[in-house]
Design a protein around this nucleic acid. Sequence first.
DNA 1: ATATAAGGTGTGAAAATTACACTCTTAAAT
DNA 2: ATTTAAGAGTGTAATTTTCACACCTTATAT
Lengths: 230, 230
Amino acid sequence: MEEKLPTFESVFSIDCLIFGFEAGELKILLIERNEEPFKGWYALPGYIVKQDESLDDAADRILYELTGLRDLQMKQFHTFGEVNRHPQGRVITVGYYALIRINGQKELRPISQYARQAVWHPVNSLPKLAFDHTEIFKNGFSKIRRRLNHQPIAFDLLPEKFTLTQLQGLYEAILNKKLDKRNFRKKMLSYGFLKELVEKQKGVSYRAAKLYKFDRRKYAKIFQNELTAE
Amino acid sequence: MEEKLPTFESVFSIDCLIFGFEAGELKILLIERNEEPFKGWYALPGYIVKQDESLDDAADRILYELTGLRDLQMKQFHTFGEVNRHPQGRVITVGYYALIRINGQKELRPISQYARQAVWHPVNSLPKLAFDHTEIFKNGFSKIRRRLNHQPIAFDLLPEKFTLTQLQGLYEAILNKKLDKRNFRKKMLSYGFLKELVEKQKGVSYRAAKLYKFDRRKYAKIFQNELTAE
DNA sequence: ATATAAGGTGTGAAAATTACACTCTTAAAT
DNA sequence: ATTTAAGAGTGTAATTTTCACACCTTATAT
């Protein structure tokens, strides 16, 4: 028989949607919950906002405590406020997202006891998630997808140096459709914010591809007019 | 000397950004506050969410109580959670917007004593607003602007029957730039979701323009693929 | 040497975007 | 009856962007 859980009046929380890209697959970071309700379930990393911290600060702290990740640039995407979304009381949660390089990160190690572990999970085969987290994921993912063509978010997911094929694979993973190689390259290079390096890919058993870097300064210069006009 | 105000721990609130279009100008709906803090100031219509209502329901109720307007389709655009944004305590507020026909509405009449009156105000000459409402307005307005080319929001602001010149004027007011008449018409009509009426404009002292209607069903049909793909 | 696996490249057709200026219609004023 | 004012309404050519499409090159492993 289930233990009776304490209830509370009303709290704000943050839930984080952290995207990564590995082995050609788009993944998100889940925690395995160590407490009721939904003990043992997978969930988005999320917790309660403190009285004296802003939402943005709370997002940083909570993600760190649950996964060990720090210094990401998270952005808000939606706030979820259905009355019964949490069984213990009224919880309104603000969804934040970030995109990061999986391999560029240290080991995932929850600080808080609240998460048993943090693991990457392919977005195409997510398990059932606690609370309304599946809905939160879908909402956030659809926003990311739309943002892909307007903001330079793809480059946050790749290593600093990457090949055009990797970049294309990432776009295909996010948009969930095949793109034409020649057209993709032509267009990407035409923007002018990719810097071709002398260095080439290493450790592959076929012709090594050229490596590129994303030049954030050039990007800003090229798009400053558009952005301020908006 | 100022009276000491009660403080509170933490609450959610809703603030509403209601856009209208009148006399060629884009306007938003403001209330004149009747209570401290910021008594007598202009503010966005907004109030506290109840324990047992969803955010969406709260937005509808609050707008009604403060302005007398009902049955708008409001959508969330951002949540504001800085620690000191409200002088009396921790208030996290969710911004909602809607676009409506000014003339299609009954008289504005606040139900709650909390608002002395509700008035339309041109977005180009807003007064100083209470709390961080100016920031909330800017954030919401920039999102509306970006949405203009992706969603059929313009038609919510016009009367049911409108001329192409009115439609163009609205686009120009939102985007804050002149558009080319021939190109604008060509493009709008090419979408195929405007229905030309037999009826013409009346009461003008020059050649009467054709009236058009926005056909929401056709719009949905035309863009269903794009929308589900996104 | 050969097989394998991905890297890298160009062109033509179609569609969309942009710039641009004059005549038509109606009501009001004379 | 004529004129005037104010916006309604219309087409084209140049440019840019998008899209579809297939083969040779290069590095490595055997």
